[in-house]
Simulated scan of single mutants.
Amino acid sequence: MNRKLLFPLCLLLSGCSLLQWYRRPEHAPAEEAARFQFPLELPADSRMKVPGVMATAIQLAMDDFRPPGAHPHSGATAEEQCLYRRESYDVFASPASQEVMLVRFVLSPEACDSKSPVLDMGATYAIDVQTWRILAIQP
């Protein structure tokens, strides 16, 4: 191979590893979706308003805490598999200031059928809502 082409090729291939590919969530087949009936309004007694800034901060922190597509190691126990699932965690969020949102993930007590207590499997994130960066993480 021509040496003049080797360096740009290596640079291009290493740059590809920096790209993060987005995968759209799975959708139900059309016939299953057609059977679902939406209510006229969201039920008032269980409805929650999550401001867009908070929802975005939660998503950003969750993508770091439990990245989409992350899987436990081969031969993982049921409890270890549970700890990898995003839905195993409760989320608490609160503004720390106008520029910073705090997002805390706490293992839901009902999530994993554990024989022994799982200690502190959560984390707290400080998210800069101006630049959408993770400022700090407290395990």
Rank of each mutant, 00 (worst) to 15 (best):
H73G: 15
D120C: 03
S114K: 12
Y89S: 02
G122I: 06
C16V: 12
P39R: 10
C16Q: 13
R104M: 02
M54K: 12
A55K: 14
A55L: 14
Q59G: 10
R85Q: 15
S17C: 02
A57Q: 05
M1G: 13
P8N: 08
K4T: 14
R3T: 11
K4M: 06
E26T: 13
E87M: 10
L42A: 10
P139K: 12
T131A: 14
S46C: 05
A44D: 08
V100C: 05
R86P: 01
E31G: 00
V100S: 03
L9T: 09
G69T: 06
F92Y: 11
L40Q: 11
Y84G: 00
A123K: 06
Q20V: 12
A76Y: 10
H73W: 09
L11Q: 04
T56R: 14
D63L: 06
V53K: 14
W132M: 15
L107A: 06
L5T: 12
E80R: 13
Q130R: 14
R23S: 11
S88D: 03
A70K: 13
A55Q: 15
K4V: 09
L135R: 09
P95K: 15
S114G: 07
S88V: 04
T124N: 01
P67M: 04
Q81V: 02
L83H: 08
L12W: 02
R133N: 13
I58S: 01
G15D: 04
S88Y: 04
V53G: 00
A34N: 03
Y84W: 14
G69I: 10
A96C: 02
D45A: 11
E31H: 05
E31R: 00
E80G: 00
P109G: 03
A126F: 03
V118Q: 10
S14D: 05
L83N: 08
E110K: 11
R3S: 11
V129A: 02
K4Q: 12
T56E: 14
R86C: 02
P51C: 03
F36R: 00
K49Y: 15
L5H: 06
S88T: 07
E110V: 13
E99V: 05
L12Q: 01
A28M: 06
D90P: 00
D90F: 07
L11D: 02
A76I: 02
A34D: 04
Q20C: 10
T124H: 03
F105C: 01
E79D: 08
Y125S: 03
C82M: 07
P117R: 07
I58L: 05
G69V: 08
D120W: 14
R23N: 08
R66P: 05
A28E: 01
M48G: 00
Q81W: 07
Q98R: 12
A33D: 00
R35Y: 03
